[in-house]
Design a protein around this nucleic acid. Structure first.
Lengths: 336, 336
DNA sequence: CACCCGTCATGAATCGATTCATGCACGTCA
DNA sequence: TGACGTGCATGAATCGATTCATGACGGGTG
């Protein structure tokens, strides 16, 4: 493998000069620069990131750890983060904790070994303990889609209470006086907050808390949604309005409801959450609460870079909260 | 940041011994080992991957470069690759070329700088030129979902001609005598091969090549599918059978067809490709050609590790071709 | 007692790029 | 002419872990 020394020898200069050609070309005379450049091209020299990194102390990679790469919402977050990072010359390593605390811990220690520049993470560990490892190593991190409980880090999130309220208000305005919330694992703040928002909307409309029935799925994916849909259909009287903690669940529910030949939205209105592309593409387009996923990824990356670029003592952690937006589609239109 | 030297000093041993405790514990006496271990824990020492890597010459990371992370098919491939790599203690860096040759080139050079252990790639560049960079750097790579034209590398793919034939045979068996192929960018082999398979099936059934009408989408995603669906509806006479190059397109077509109040499958049968989870979750569950995506990712990673572990001279490149499978669902049931 | 062997620990050399104190050559100005 | 500055190039030191030749020590054997 050709290294900087080979280039230096071929070009008849010192290694320091080659390094300068690459990193501070203005310090090198025109003539030397072109000569060295041409040798670099001829030999196909590619500098070793590990050597650079070793010297510099930190890598040029930002890690992104998400809960579920099978959820297009996180794919969008990744897209936003990647774009922002690339603009600053950083690479992004996207990893999937699959909502498992142990996977999360393993990945975080992998990141620590890599001396990544920083980590963008939607934690799976409800205790937040797994992040201690990062703190001990002084690796900056930004919480994504989660508010930092103790303000120990920056965070970018979307107001899930508002989102839940928007969804429920919409259903209430359409005349529904009771609704079902299809949630997921209780320890996910997202799941809890969306429910809290829905409850608040009911209360504001003068409806009792009992107007909200909850069905709890054990994962947040389509097949869990199908199971939830089956349970939903077993309820008596049959619910007329359903709000799901995310679109994957909603699509599963939709499918189960369809299979039972119940028409949407006439007999049952369904609202999802995230507004993934497949929500609009469902045969009955899904009403959903849109989250600015790409923007969230971008902001998170930008905040991380802000933190790592300035001097770390002066840095003040920020909590950015974005607003969700209701997107009304066919699955919840007011029946005439 | 605490390094191996700090550990050595605290534990009263040499750096070499600390290294041995970590990497070859059997060479160290019980007593020393536990003492060093406890110092490691106390100080929170985490070894620097960059330093290891610099010495070792190659990193412990495998790169995966896919065409579209928005396509759940590639998410599954990533899942398979990740699982296999993790079992061998390797990390996976997943990146998205978004079908852009220039992005691809940038990422590949990033990988080269990182001295990744190897690359799993579904090339976007139709010329295959972008891979030369890897070859020059002697970075092993495995083609995913693509056959190596010149056998210059290993590859794992699925027989797309067979897949296309399966889809078309199914439609022909249901009584359709002409069909529309909704394809994508012509330079993607996947798109071409699936079409070729469909043509072959027509021929085998004694139907003329004109029985296949082609509509070409410019991307392989849902919104391109919607556009294609609109064009499809403009055809006269209206087609009764549609085969799409992937499920994203098919979902878009389905949506457009639904919006036009044409019933599926009674008035129009639709078959997709990939069998992503959302295919089954569509309100009219989509008939699709299933590809063993997770297995493909796993195999690709395994072949890469096989290539990198043995001595590279002895390695013989292999071309593994998997078989697709038709999954019949509601979108194509034979009308009674 | 001399010798050998096995078990452990040592510490210098190494990987490749960056950085910075040093110095050379040339030009300018007093 | 000597002093000084500027523009460039130099090469040794450095980052942190691994590796390996070396050697210390203790026990067993002839």
């Amino acid at each position: 493998m050709v290294g900087i020394k080979d280039v230096a020898r071929q070009a008849g200069v010192s290694v320091g000069t080659v390094s300068n050609v690459i990193n501070r070309p203005d310090l090198v005379s025109e003539e030397t620069r072109t000569r060295v450049q041409s040798v670099i091209n001829k030999l196909g020299y590619i500098r070793s990131e590990s050597a650079r990194q070793l010297r510099a102390g930190a890598s040029r990679i930002v890690a992104l750890l998400v809960l579920d790469m099978g959820n297009p919402f996180f794919v969008d977050v990744a897209k936003g983060a990647e774009r922002a990072a690339r603009q600053s010359g950083l690479g992004v390593m996207v990893c999937n904790s699959a909502q498992s605390t142990s996977e999360e811990v393993e990945y975080l220690s992998l990141f620590a070994e890599q001396r990544v520049r920083g980590v963008l993470v939607t934690p799976a560990d409800p205790t937040g303990r797994s992040l201690d490892a990062l703190r001990r190593q002084r690796i900056p991190y930004v919480l994504v889609d989660r508010v930092s409980a103790d303000a120990a880090a920056c965070s970018v999130s979307v107001d899930d209470v508002v989102g839940g309220r928007l969804a429920a208000q919409h259903l209430i305005a359409a005349g529904h006086t009771s609704l079902v919330y299809v949630g997921g694992p209780r320890d996910l703040p997202q799941v809890r907050d969306r429910r809290a928002g829905a409850l608040a909307a009911l209360q504001e409309a003068g409806l009792p808390p009992e107007a909200l029935t909850e069905i709890s799925a054990d994962r947040l994916d389509v097949s869990a949604g199908r199971d939830a849909g089956a349970r939903l259909l077993g309820l008596a009287p049959r619910p007329t309005a359903v709000f799901c903690a995310n679109d994957l669940l909603a699509l599963g529910v939709l499918q189960a409801v369809f299979a039972a030949r119940i028409s949407v939205p006439e007999q049952m209105a369904i609202v999802g959450y995230d507004d993934i592309e497949f929500a609009a593409a469902a045969a009955v387009p899904l009403t959903s609460v849109r989250q600015p996923a790409v923007a969230m990824g971008r902001l998170a990356a930008e905040m991380l870079m802000e933190e790592t670029s300035g001097d770390s003592e002066a840095h003040e952690h920020r909590q950015v909260v974005l607003q969700p937006e209701l997107v009304v589609r066919g699955s919840s239109l007011t029946p005439r």
